[in-house]
Amino acid sequence: MLYLFYIFAFISVACAISVVASRSPVNSVISLILCFISIAGHYILLNAQFLAVVHIIVYTGAIMVLFLFVIMLLNLNKAIEPRKSLLGRVAAVAAAGIFMLTMLGAIKHGIQVAPGAEFNAGTGLVKSVGQSLFGPFLLPFEISSVLFLSAIIGAVMLGRKEASPRPLSGGEGQIQQTMP
């Protein structure tokens, strides 16, 4: 079974590098969708079936389609991005690489990953996760609906066109009235 993990891990890392490195945003979105699908494969390997399905629906079905819509609506696919200086790129990659080495060193030498006490294979099934979600986590679940409502209102407020240009100087008694 270990080879399945390696296949999924290779696909994830290769697609993640392709997201960062490709010039065209549409290619980045397609690579990111592939990366998410391979991560859903990891979830299935971990027997987290609820999360795998939710991950496919939410990320691949909703979020990435939203990205594609925005790219195509705004016609962003032209590679107009100016190249950053070599120093900036080397600095960014070196910072991320040093971060990774630090974390890996900490895990290798500092943190002991303790094995689980008693093993229950049905942890990630819908029944177990649902009982936890609607039991001890009921209040955060309800609060997250308020978060979604505020996100919807914020997106609508940000995305609408202003009907008329605001008067730049107020207080003169002259209020511009534009009839639609």
């Binding site: 993640a16 991005e81 950053k84 990659v93 991320a96 690489g97 990774m100």
Partner: peptide
């Protein structure tokens, strides 16, 4: 997950495109 996080961090640091 460390490797994936570092790739994402490097991309957020050295790309100019907001959508990426």
């Amino acid at each position: 997950s460390m490797i994936l996080f570092s790739i994402g961090l490097a991309g957020a640091l050295f790309r100019h495109n907001t959508i990426i």
